[in-house]
Nucleic acid binder design. Structure first.
Length: 897
RNA sequence: GGGCCGAUAGAUCAGCGGUAGAUCGCCUGCUUUGCAAGCAGGAGGGCUCGGGUUCAAAUCCCGAUCGGUCCA
């Protein structure tokens, strides 16, 4: 990217008298009205100067500041911005990220790619965002949060419609700060900075006031393109026809600036902090110390606990304050209080989108926050539980948290508390096992973390409890873990390329079209593309259709159908030349069964949501001919009773004959109408969304083929439920003819079992139980008798040469005999004559070693053992060709011990 | 989706080729005014399931099932 001065050579800067300077500390270019200013505004170059000295004319709360910002951009006559309510924090409209990280995420990729128009232009909104990356720093640096609201005023400039660009954006930010917050214009600095991320790039300016970054104004006009003419840090970009103004103001930062407190937490969570302090061991700490920590932390980047605490110590000593154990403990408590305020707000946002804590993906992030919260609550001795704190926080942030589903949250917290306690309890014993001679090597620590999920803090806690020593865990512990893993690379499918030919999908016109004629527009290596087709290509969890084409009177089978862009490609068992006109026939039975399973899937999902609760989302789906499966988010195991109830509810909906309707709707109107539930089955890459609605039950964006009425499903039978991962239940089921076949299969199994057992079908379970119990009791009797027999054998040995010899035949319970003999400290030899071989066991007691001489004696007699194994004072010889064991007995007679 | 762990008495786990074990809990008795505790005795096991290796498998190998956990 060129850093030409003209990038920001805008009317507003010129007219207002801004000067472009270069920072003496970091060499960045920045714009200021202050002729004395030498640094760029970044705290790394000049540190905070707003704490205790607010540049804002009054103190704002979060709600007040949000209102101030939105109203300014909504109502100012110069440009009226449309207000857009916040999107959920879980971005169901895209699958490349787990959480909304910034306001622009709401419009990626559909709007930013130009495919879908924005919901307004220009727009203003406040988007709650979650960033888990710096989780460890929350509470420590005075500024890090996992949740913040990103205020933005965004404009989308198309080739045929210009809204506004750099000049207006920067002027607006200046006007907001100076007119509304009444910040002295000399305190505002704009620092130039290139910006890139998510496949896009552009110029940007960061806005600083007294050392605090309050906003970033991004001018996105580049997209990643290997043939592009602009290069930034090794990646090539090209100019986009759509230029996006993407601004991000930190709402909490602005509130902090106005309150000028020592930490951001004190500015935004003051009530929650007081609530926590009043009900725990934590206390407030001198403001000057906390302000100092925030200031140092802003300068030391990356953060280092050691460096920061050294500075704090120096500072306190210079002020004649005592830096001691008690202070360190109190600081830890206060940081935990700050973290609790932060974590619980993040959790409320996650819970309002029904995130279920688990061991994977976004659920794992939620669990991390929950477990940290439990730890902090226990540590500071908070009088109430996490649920109570969440309730308190909801009272504080009602305006931005869409809902508080009490039953869901209470269930989740209860389950998570139990799991957390169980993990803590077992962790002690597990860690103990790994400690050898007061030592716990790094390998073991990694294993404890990866296999048992015990975090490094807990490991070092337990280590300290057991050994009294301090365990050193490397700073880059998490990096080591990632490096430790082999990066499992997905084998990328060989990307087939086809010419860009549009195929008209007849299955959308009418699902009952099964025979059609078409022109072959492209043919290559048994793959053809037609002008139109009734064959459904694989997609949306629905497999492709099968069938055949008739060409020249010959029947050519369809093996596979796939969609590439707008082309539908048929894979055949032999070639059809281009420009042919052919007839296609779709396999009706297969298609019909797939349609039944597809519609049944939607019905089942709708029914399960109303049965279990609104937290039920589709997380995966696969339809097939014999059975289909649907994965849902749900935090409990599905019981047999649930299965029965769900089947009954489905049956009722089938009986009622609910209509199934397909409509095509514009992106934004569909979203307004149905919300983000539309994207359960995946996100369509198109201007319009095809919405499949089952009357009163479910609406979903879906590209599949469906029945017209639920009555055509006939009935649904659930075959199996299982926990796929924590928080995700898989339901395997069959519908229509497949369900009938399944029931018939079960009937045959039961019938066979019934005939075998010779009882009525309802007695099969009782009867098998009886048989198993009988078997167990017989085995016991057998074991007892074997013991008795063994005892008899041992008591009646043949004494040869002072050695106990047991010459026995076909003895099966050899284990009992040998182990009993081992207990005596006497030489014994067991000769067990089996069908095809003789096995000789020499149990040589404690001191003696007769085995070697016995082996050589046997060999002298012309007997070659097929195998000799020695272990634990036993020698075992397998001899295959031996008729008479007398030779063995003779050899024993000659042995000298 | 990939990796790593695990499944043994009611609970927590030990055993890791040779008779199925410990602790807590449970039952009975003794001691005690009673409780807690102590002493003595006792009951309680398809060693998750299915194959394989072995003279011999809870133990080793391969599957399946269920669970834990870390990383995408």
């Amino acid at each position: 990217m060129d850093y030409m001065p003209e990038e920001f050579d805008i009317d507003f800067f010129r007219d207002t008298g801004f000067m472009r300077k270069q920072c003496i500390s970091c060499s960045s270019y920045f714009w200021t009205l202050d002729s004395e200013k030498k640094t760029c505004g970044d705290p790394a170059c000049e540190s905070y100067s707003f704490i205790g000295n607010s540049p804002v004319y009054r103190k704002y709360t979060i709600d007040e500041m949000r209102e101030e910002f939105i109203k300014f951009f909504q109502n100012d006559s110069e440009f009226r911005h449309k207000f857009i309510p916040a999107y959920p924090v879980v971005p169901r409209w895209r699958d490349d990220v787990l959480l909304v990280n910034a306001s622009i995420y709401d419009f990626q990729p559909q709007v930013t790619s130009g495919l879908v128009p924005p919901p307004g232009n220009p727009i203003v909104m406040s988007q709650p965002s979650i960033r888990m990356l710096d989780l460890d720093l929350v509470g420590k640096t005075g500024r890090h949060l996992t949740t913040f609201e990103m205020l933005c005023h965004d404009a989308f400039n198309y080739e045929d419609k210009f809204v506004y660009w750099k000049n207006e954006t920067i002027r607006y930010s200046f006007r907001f700060l100076t007119e509304r917050l009444k910040v002295d214009k000399n305190l505002i600095t704009y620092k130039e900075k290139p910006w890139f991320g998510g496949g896009n790039a552009g110029n940007a300016v960061e806005v600083f006031v007294r050392g605090l970054e309050v906003a970033t104004l991004v001018f996105m006009d580049l997209k990643e393109d290997p043939n592009g003419d602009v290069e930034i840090e090794g990646t090539k970009y090209s100019h986009m026809p759509l230029r996006v103004v993407d601004t991000g103001y930190g709402l909490e930062r602005l509130v902090w600036l106005s309150a000028a407190t020592s930490t951001i937490y004190d500015a935004i969570y003051d009530k929650t902090i007081n609530f926590l302090i009043e009900n725990s061991k934590a206390k407030k700490i001198n403001d000057k110390i906390m302000a100092k920590i925030s200031e140092i932390s802003a300068v030391i980047d990356p953060y280092s606990e050691e460096k920061v605490m050294n500075e704090v110590k120096k500072f306190m000593e210079s002020k004649k304050m005592e830096y001691n154990e008690d202070f360190i403990k109190q600081l830890k408590f206060l940081r935990e209080v700050y973290s609790l305020a932060d974590h619980t707000k993040t959790l409320l946002l996650m819970f309002s989108d029904y995130v279920i804590p688990s061991n994977v993906k976004v659920g794992y992030l939620a669990r991390t926050l929950i477990r940290r919260s439990f730890r902090f609550i226990d540590d500071i001795g908070f009088k109430y539980d996490l649920e109570k704190l969440l309730e308190f926080q909801y009272g504080e942030f009602k305006n931005i948290i869409p809902r508080f589903d009490e039953k869901f949250i209470s269930d989740i917290i209860k389950i998570e508390r139990e799991k957390y306690n169980a993990v803590n309890q077992s962790s002690f014993n597990i860690v103990k096992k790994f400690i050898k001679d007061d030592d716990l090597p790094l390998d073991s620590i990694i294993r404890l973390y990866e296999s048992y999920g015990i975090n490094e803090d807990l490991i070092s806690d337990i280590y300290h409890q057991i050994t009294g020593k301090t365990l050193i865990i490397p700073d880059n512990f998490h990096e080591l873990i990632i490096k430790n893993k082999e990066i499992g690379r997905k084998e990328t499918k060989k990307q087939l390329t086809f010419p860009d030919i549009k195929t008209r999908p007849l299955y959308y016109d009418n699902t009952k079209i099964l025979e059609f004629t078409a022109n072959v527009l492209y043919s290559c290596d048994k793959k053809i593309i037609l002008n139109q087709t009734a064959f459904y290509p694989e997609g949306g969890g629905q497999p492709y259709d099968l069938g055949y084409f008739i060409y020249n009177g010959k029947r050519i089978n369809v093996l596979n159908v796939q969609k590439y862009g707008d082309s539908i490609v048929h894979f055949l068992d032999s070639d059809i030349p281009e420009h042919s006109r052919i007839k296609g026939v779709v396999d009706y039975n297969r298609r019909h069964q797939l349609m039944i399973h597809h519609s049944a899937t939607h019905l089942l999902l709708g029914v399960m949501r109303s049965y279990f609760g609104d937290h039920v989302w589709q997380s995966g789906v696969k339809k097939d001919v014999n059975e289909s499966r649907l994965d849902i988010t749900h935090y409990k195991k599905i019981t047999e009773e649930d299965i029965k109830n769900i089947e009954d509810l489905c049956f009722r909906a089938i009986e009622d004959g609910k209509t199934i309707r397909v409509t095509n709707e514009k992106w934004n109107t569909a979203l307004d109408k149905y919300g983000f539930r539309l994207f359960e089955g995946g996100v369509p890459v198109s201007k319009t969304i095809r919405v499949v609605t089952i009357q009163d039950i479910d609406s979903e964006g879906c590209g599949g083929t469906h029945l017209d009425n639920t009555s055509e499903i006939h009935f649904i039978k659930i075959i199996k439920t299982e926990t796929l991962q924590e928080g995700i239940q898989r339901v395997t089921f069959a519908a229509g003819p497949a369900a009938l076949r399944y029931v018939q299969k079960l009937y045959n199994i039961i019938k066979a079992e019934q005939e075998y057992m010779r009882v009525d079908e309802d007695k099969i379970a009782d009867q098998s139980k009886k048989y198993i119990e009988e078997l167990i009791s017989l085995r016991k009797t057998y074991d007892d008798q074997s013991r008795e027999i063994t005892k008899n054998i041992i008591n009646n040995p043949e004494k040869i040469n002072n050695i106990n010899v047991y010459n026995i035949e076909n003895y099966t319970n050899i284990k009992l005999l040998i182990s009993a003999l081992q207990k005596f400290n006497q030489e014994s030899i067991v000769i067990n004559r089996l069908q095809n071989e003789v096995i000789i066991y020499i149990i040589s007691g404690q001191a003696s070693s007769i085995t070697d001489s016995l082996i050589s004696l046997i060999k002298n007699n012309g007997i070659e053992p097929d195998r000799v194994t020695k272990s634990h004072g036993i020698c075992i010889m397998n001899v295959n060709n031996i008729k008479n064991t007398d030779i063995l007995l003779d050899s024993i007679k000659k042995v000298k011990s």
